[in-house]
């Protein structure tokens, strides 16, 4: 079977750069006028289709994306004579053109339902095939700048004092987000978030780096498992230490641990603190001083050790 699979591309080892009867003229014709594009095209991942020579003319070189160029050549140029000129295409058509080859990958499996596709942010909004600023993935700009271009509020959040180090280069947006769309999140029940990159097991991306928080623990903090880390933390950045959602720890805890009926595992209310706690004493205002294993414990149901 392996030999059979290998046989197919090995048979055609020469690039089909010559004209044929279907309107394809071959990439050699393109480089006559578009020398500026052609001169660096060997650095482009799409050049493989020419170098390997394994594909049919409609999947090789310039015409694989732009379509058969016979009419364009005969008209001696002009954008309107290019069957697929991306600068003239609607976003949906640009997407379909790229997905003709690129759809079958894990990272793009949900691209049809992604927020970007729905807002007509097509492939060429972020990728520059001929003039990429970043060679890997052919990005039009450095990745963080691409995202900031539209996601203004994210830029503000990453400028806060307590944040993931995106501006410093330690973390990238794509560590936690998939710009091509993601499956439904397992830790939230609404339509959002759509673009958060789940782990392959469908869990929140925080656990990929913060492996010590994943467990299993004998005594799990159910809030984390059911509603996710965002219950307590602001993942982009926060004005509060440790990227917490409140400046004081005890109010963060007490907003859930208030005994209100109808919530929690038992639906009888999330347990209240005991009467031995005196919140008037500052000692009791930083709950994690004693509840040190707040993300889960193997030794104490109250996360004390």
């Amino acid at each position: 079977m392996l030999l059979l699979c290998l046989r197919l591309p090995l048979q055609a080892a020469q690039p089909p750069l010559t004209p044929n009867s279907t309107g394809y003229v071959g990439s050699n014709a393109c480089k006559t006028c578009h020398a500026d594009v052609w001169s660096n095209f060997y650095k482009n991942p799409h050049y493989k289709s020419i170098a390997l020579g394994a594909e049919s003319p409609e999947k090789t070189g310039c015409e694989s994306c732009h379509g058969p160029a016979k009419a364009h050549v005969e008209a001696r140029g002009g954008k309107t004579t290019i069957p697929r000129a991306f600068s003239l295409m609607p976003a949906g058509q640009a997407l379909n053109t790229c997905l003709a080859c690129h759809e079958k990958s894990i990272s793009r499996a949900q691209i049809r339902r992604s927020s970007h596709t729905q807002a007509d942010v097509a492939c060429n909004s972020c990728h520059s095939i001929h003039k990429p600023a970043v060679a890997k993935s052919l990005l039009a700009k450095q990745q963080t700048n691409l995202c900031y271009g539209c996601h203004n509020s994210a830029r503000s959040q990453f400028a806060m004092p307590h944040k993931h180090r995106v501006n410093e280069g330690a973390v990238q947006c794509i560590d936690c987000h998939n710009p091509h769309g993601s499956p439904a999140a397992a830790w939230r029940s609404g339509l959002r978030p759509r673009m958060v990159e789940t782990t392959m097991d469908g869990e929140q991306p925080c656990l990929r780096c913060h492996t010590d928080k994943r467990g299993p623990f004998v005594f799990e903090h159910a809030a984390i498992r059911v509603e996710g880390c965002e219950t307590c933390h602001a993942p982009h950045g926060s004005m509060n230490p440790r990227m917490l959602r409140r400046p004081a720890v005890f109010t963060l805890c007490l907003e859930c641990h208030n005994g209100a009926s109808g919530f929690g595992l038992s639906r009888d209310g999330i347990p209240l603190q005991t009467s031995s706690h005196n919140v008037n004493d500052p000692r009791y205002r930083n709950c994690v001083t004693c509840h040190v294993r707040i993300h889960g414990s193997n030794s104490d149901p109250r996360f004390l050790r």
């Binding site: 830029r155 503000s156 208030n258 603190q273």
Partner: peptide, 18 residues
């Protein structure tokens, strides 16, 4: 660029004090 992010949350709580 300029951005403003407003957040207000109001939650009922219960606790022991003294």
């Amino acid at each position: 660029g300029y951005g403003k992010q407003h957040l207000d949350t109001l939650t009922g709580i219960a606790y022991f004090a003294s």
